[in-house]
Amino acid sequence: MGNWKELALEVLDGKELSNQEAVEILNSPDEELLELLHGSYIIRHHYFGNKVKLNKIINAKSGMCPENCGYCSQSSISNAPIEKYRMVDKDSIVAGAKQAYDSKVGTYCIVASGRGPSDKEIDTVIEAVKEIKQDYPLTLCACLGILKPEQAARLKEAGVDRYNHNINTSANHYEQITTSHTYADRVNTVMTAKEAGISPCSGVIIGMRETEKDIVDMAFSLKALDADSIPVNFLNAIDGTPLEKTAELEPRYCLKVLALMRYVNPTKEIRISGGREVNLRSLQPLGLYPANSLFLGDYLTTEGQDSSADHQMLKDLGFEIDIKLPEASL
């Protein structure tokens, strides 16, 4: 390929990448990496300028999950020494929202382990969401597992803006990662959220012994799903999980994956998510040329980079934090 700027301009004119072009991005020589990132930045800047969306997670329910996802320290087959607790109370979720807002975060993500939420857990989330919406101009995202249509409708009515349910990997590779639910279950939950009028968020985990074809399939599957937000996680292999000691990623390849996601999904929020610190390492800032979103602070059971370092990184890049302002200050 080589002419990544020309391809970017074609994408802006409405071109959709072919599978072959997508593979060429992943296989592009390192000598072309800066050109590839420049091309992806042309697309990113066209739709998002130099703004970066910040996201923050609260792990509202940890561990004790009956699913057997091979990457997850909270799964039934994990021996990882993590903290385990049932759904926190409403006040704890609201307090997390205040911390997020004080950190200039725009999207606050309420995450709970498990196959899917009980009605009581939905009640707790709804109570918290209503209070948060009164006090903070945050985009609220819920990530609670497989969702029933009536639960989705209640979350929408309460004020939940976005629902996250990652496809995680390709349909072809799915049974190598988990067998306690199917790829179709994941897709159906994303569709359930969309049908309720909630913005769909769905992403991937790279580095789970998948092939390049699997990664390309993920990018096009997310395009077909029309996910508004696409978190790109890079496996942080946790001891005690089936994927422990898996270390197959290097920073330049991670950047090519982010570029691929931008070329295939040009108008979408591409978020650098879990595992960026251990996989992108010193090249983290370059990831924000294709991506326009970032998780701030800690993840579910692993620590993230210090928030002050992320704020400094954005300042050094000359990027602007994209955050809603209270109506009174508009």
Rank of each mutant, 00 (worst) to 15 (best):
R162Y: 11
Q176C: 13
A158W: 08
Q176M: 14
I177G: 06
I177E: 06
A152L: 03
A171S: 12
R154L: 14
A158T: 09
E150L: 02
Y163Q: 01
N168Y: 02
S170P: 03
T169Y: 11
E175T: 14
N166I: 09
V160K: 02
R154S: 12
E150I: 09
I177K: 04
G159E: 03
E175Q: 14
L155G: 03
E150A: 02
T169P: 04
K148P: 04
E157W: 08
V160L: 08
G159S: 04
Y163F: 10
H165A: 00
D161A: 12
P149F: 00
A153H: 10
L155Y: 06
P149R: 00
N168T: 11
Y163D: 00
E150D: 13
P149S: 00
A153V: 12
T169I: 11
A171H: 13
L155S: 05
R162C: 13
T178P: 00
Q176P: 02
A152P: 02
R162E: 11
N164H: 12
E150V: 05
T178K: 13
H165C: 01
I177V: 15
H165L: 06
H173I: 06
E157N: 13
N166V: 05
K156L: 10
K156A: 11
V160I: 14
E150N: 12
L155H: 03
N164R: 05
H173L: 04
H173N: 09
Y163K: 02
Q151S: 03
H165I: 02
R154I: 09
S170Y: 12
Q151W: 11
L155I: 03
A171Q: 14
H173D: 05
I167T: 04
H165F: 08
A171V: 05
S170D: 10
T169V: 08
